[in-house]
Measured scan of single mutants.
Amino acid sequence: GLTEEQKQEIREAFDLFDTDGSGTIDAKELKVAMRALGFEPKKEEIKKMISEIDKDGSGTIDFEEFLTMMTA
């Protein structure tokens, strides 16, 4: 499992990506986040990433899903 410290770091990354503070990361926010990390993702790639992570089919990534992605 994760230490509380690791969870906190992932939470901070999540909050950075969640620019509108909605508690979820949408495609637009993910794209901005990827760019910040030096990637140039295409729209299809973003969609694919979200569909792989987005277990509940909401079209957005919540913290639990993000946590799973970061620790996979």
Rank of each mutant, 00 (worst) to 15 (best):
G1V: 12
G1Q: 10
L2M: 09
L2A: 04
T3A: 05
T3Y: 04
T3G: 03
T3E: 02
E4W: 08
E4P: 11
E4H: 08
E4Y: 07
E5Q: 13
E5N: 09
E5D: 12
E5S: 09
E5T: 11
Q6G: 06
Q6L: 13
Q6H: 10
K7P: 01
K7E: 06
Q8F: 07
Q8D: 05
Q8C: 12
Q8N: 09
E9K: 15
E9M: 11
E9Q: 12
E9P: 05
I10F: 12
I10Y: 14
R11V: 02
R11S: 02
R11P: 00
R11Q: 05
E12P: 01
E12D: 13
E12G: 06
E12L: 12
E12I: 12
A13Y: 11
A13F: 15
A13C: 15
F14A: 00
F14V: 00
D15V: 05
D15P: 01
D15S: 05
D15I: 08
D15N: 14
L16E: 06
F17T: 03
D18S: 03
D18H: 02
D18G: 01
D18I: 05
T19R: 12
T19G: 05
T19F: 13
T19D: 04
D20I: 03
D20T: 08
D20C: 06
D20P: 01
D20M: 04
D20N: 09
G21T: 03
G21H: 14
G21A: 06
S22C: 05
S22M: 05
S22H: 03
S22F: 03
S22I: 02
G23S: 05
G23P: 00
G23D: 02
G23K: 03
G23E: 02
G23V: 01
G23M: 02
T24M: 05
I25D: 00
I25A: 00
I25G: 00
D26H: 06
D26G: 07
A27I: 14
A27W: 12
A27L: 14
A27E: 11
A27M: 09
K28L: 08
E29D: 15
E29G: 07
E29T: 07
E29M: 13
E29I: 10
L30E: 00
L30F: 05
L30C: 05
L30I: 08
L30K: 00
L30P: 00
K31S: 11
K31M: 15
K31C: 15
K31Q: 12
K31V: 15
K31I: 15
K31L: 15
K31Y: 15
V32P: 11
V32F: 12
V32R: 15
V32Q: 15
A33C: 08
A33K: 02
M34C: 10
M34W: 03
M34V: 04
M34G: 01
M34H: 01
M34I: 07
M34P: 00
R35N: 10
R35L: 08
R35C: 14
R35S: 10
A36F: 12
A36D: 05
L37C: 15
L37E: 02
G38A: 01
G38K: 01
G38W: 01
F39P: 01
F39V: 09
F39S: 02
E40I: 09
E40H: 13
E40N: 15
E40K: 11
P41D: 07
P41Q: 05
P41L: 15
P41T: 12
P41E: 04
K42C: 14
K42A: 12
K42S: 15
K42M: 11
K42Q: 11
K42F: 09
K43H: 13
K43C: 14
K43A: 15
K43F: 14
K43V: 13
E44T: 06
E44L: 07
E44S: 11
E45Y: 11
E45P: 02
E45I: 13
E45T: 10
E45M: 13
I46P: 01
I46E: 03
I46V: 07
I46W: 08
K47V: 08
K47R: 10
K47F: 06
K48N: 08
K48C: 15
K48W: 04
K48V: 05
K48M: 09
K48A: 12
M49H: 04
M49L: 13
M49W: 05
M49P: 02
I50E: 03
I50M: 13
I50K: 01
I50P: 01
S51C: 10
S51N: 10
E52T: 10
E52G: 08
E52P: 02
E52M: 14
I53P: 02
I53M: 13
I53T: 04
I53K: 03
D54W: 07
D54A: 10
D54F: 11
D54S: 12
D54H: 09
D54V: 10
K55A: 08
K55N: 10
K55H: 08
K55V: 10
K55Q: 11
G57C: 12
G57T: 05
G57P: 05
S58E: 06
S58P: 03
S58M: 07
G59H: 06
G59K: 09
G59M: 08
G59R: 08
G59L: 07
G59V: 05
T60Q: 12
T60L: 09
T60H: 07
T60K: 12
I61P: 00
I61L: 08
I61M: 04
I61A: 01
I61S: 00
D62Y: 07
D62I: 04
D62A: 06
D62T: 15
F63Q: 01
F63E: 00
F63T: 00
F63W: 10
F63L: 04
E64P: 05
E64M: 07
E64S: 08
E65N: 06
E65F: 09
F66N: 00
F66D: 00
F66S: 00
F66Q: 00
L67Y: 07
L67W: 10
L67C: 04
L67P: 00
L67F: 06
T68I: 12
T68N: 14
T68W: 13
T68R: 09
T68L: 13
M69Y: 15
M69C: 14
M69V: 10
M69G: 04
M69T: 03
M69W: 15
M69P: 00
M70Y: 07
M70C: 14
M70P: 01
T71C: 13
T71R: 06
T71M: 10
A72K: 12
